[in-house]
Design a protein around this nucleic acid. Sequence first.
DNA 1: CCCTCTGTGGAAATTTAGTT
DNA 2: AACTAAATTTCCACAGAGGG
Length: 669
Amino acid sequence: MTITTFDHKLSSFTHNIYDVNFFGDRIRTLVTNSPSMVESCILEIELIHRKRLGRLIVGLDAEHHPNFNYKNEHPIATLQLCVGHRCLIFQMIHAPDIPQCLEDLLLNDKYSFVGVKVGEDVENLERSYNLSVGNAIDLRTLAAEQVQVFGMNMMELKQAGLKDLSERILGKKLEKPKQTRLSNWDDRKLSSDQVQYACLDAFVSFEIARILKTNPAYSFKHSSSQRLVPVNGLVILVSSSVCLEAPIRVACLYRHRIVGHGSLVLAYSSRFLDWLVIPEDLGSILLRGRAQLGDQALLGGGHHREMRRWAFRGGHWGLYFGFGGEIKRLCLVLRWRWLDVRQCCPTHNIYDVTFFGDRIRTLATNSPSMVESWISEIEFIHRKRLGRLIVGLYTEHWYPIATLQLCVGHRCLFFHMIHTSSIPQALKNFLLNKSYSFVGFKVEEGLKRLEKVYNLSVGNVIDLTTLAAQVLGRDMEESKKAGLEDLCEKVLRKKVAKKKVVEFIGRGISSDQLNGVAERKNRTILNMVRSMLKDKNMPNSFWAEAVLCAVYLLNRCPTNSLDTKTPQEAWSSHKPSVSHLRVFGSIAYIKVPEARRTKLEDKGEKCILVGYGDRTMGYRLYNPVTKKVIFSRDVIFEENESWNWDQTKASRSAELIPEEETREVATEP
DNA sequence: CCCTCTGTGGAAATTTAGTT
DNA sequence: AACTAAATTTCCACAGAGGG
């Protein structure tokens, strides 16, 4: 047992002493209703901690009879104070009077009284006993501000309870049984469960506050048994336009666990912090596989809004979708990037991005030393015009800044700041250099974050819109409104004399430009998905499969942009076969192998086609009865038929099957 | 030009977790 | 059981883009 209580069973009516053991911490607890005992206990505590009276942290909590009926409010029954391994449980409701020294203690504003929802307790104390507390700090606010993950504040802790905080920050599981919580706190003789509950409430509050105060910017590192991965988000990375159907890499980091391999199972994530794009080089924690199907469709309406918010915050997402249902409000972000993520070395990679004949050599890295060498290389190449060097600057900012992109001439740097160990001094100096002009498009927000998160400031920033307005001599307003894409087109087409503008646009556009393509593609795909689902009258919850299927098909359709080649061909240089394609949502019968079949079993399993195999030839089939996705090659199709979904729904509601649906994605055979 | 769809911002409504 | 605060979802109105 990690939590135990030992009752000393003192024979006194007015007080008793317990030893509460909490993961090796023994907390000596005095339970009393006598003011004199309280007085002596406070004196003792002040004596023990006499050296740090100036900044003493006191865990504070109060219990009262549960409000089963709101009309009669119950006064506070017990007040718990905890400092170090001493805890005082004062049964105020049975005390003849309140000792003066308690009053003074609470009023002393050198002490911080911490607790979850301490404000209410304080209010209650004031109302019932006319006691006011000088300096009360709500633990949740403290935690939210102090606990940082990759520089982000864990704002979600604002709503966490003590149990949650204890688990996350102390790594210790605090039991708060409802039975005890709602027990009768007015009793003169508290049960040992109650004592334990009351004591631990205060102690854990104290302990959390102590840890938070002593380690500011506490960052989840200390747990020994589990690997604490602090982001409960999920990230999908998809490389170029062809790659959407390629195995989606999913990093699912929830609380301490990385769940599953192959299929993603997130039990619960109603609140997640933020997206975090995890570059390939963290391959060890990237899982391969498809996320599970959700219950709720997120195409249009409803959750869509949610998607938008995140997507917007993330900057320039190409394609984004969300999952609902079982995976609660977990969103998937699919993104088209110009970056080729297929070949990645742990710390850096080099890409050649071609933009209308300009080949831009791009270094993507998270290693400070690589950044340093990039900078020195640039400074060497352009050594003759260091005095008036123009640097294209762009930040892909979700929170905090994830990448910083710099571009000079045909060299581009893609710095994953969020995954870097340190910011090299060379970069700091580079950015601060007054003789360089950093040209950016709408980078104010990014710069702000740069400054805030990484303490990097940029010396000489020129906003592209302003510059363009000046150079083009057009109506300022019009140019200011123009997007980068717009600007690019105008400037390039008009062949404006000022070459520098052209130059920067040529470089800086890379990600934006192609994102535009992705955004357009998004629509096409959504249209396809909609019609696919409607045609076979499938429930919207299949949108994810439909999207994958649509992309699969698109990749096998010739497009003009590739000289009427299919994307698949462009990617893998051999013509894709289309003979195996079948109508999405049609009925499929899986042949059960003779050997595995008993005499009475059905010959085939009736399923619905929901997609194609990732790598290997085959079909993904959904069995509406077992609600599982199966992967199979040996299938017979009835393309004209479709599943009667209405009937399934009706029978489901009639049987009142509980809502838990464990869908699985079968691993490849 | 009209129609449809999507994106956006704000407000209101609803849900959720936490408290005793 | 009752209540609160925060988070999330829904709703509404409107603008802008793109297809026909």
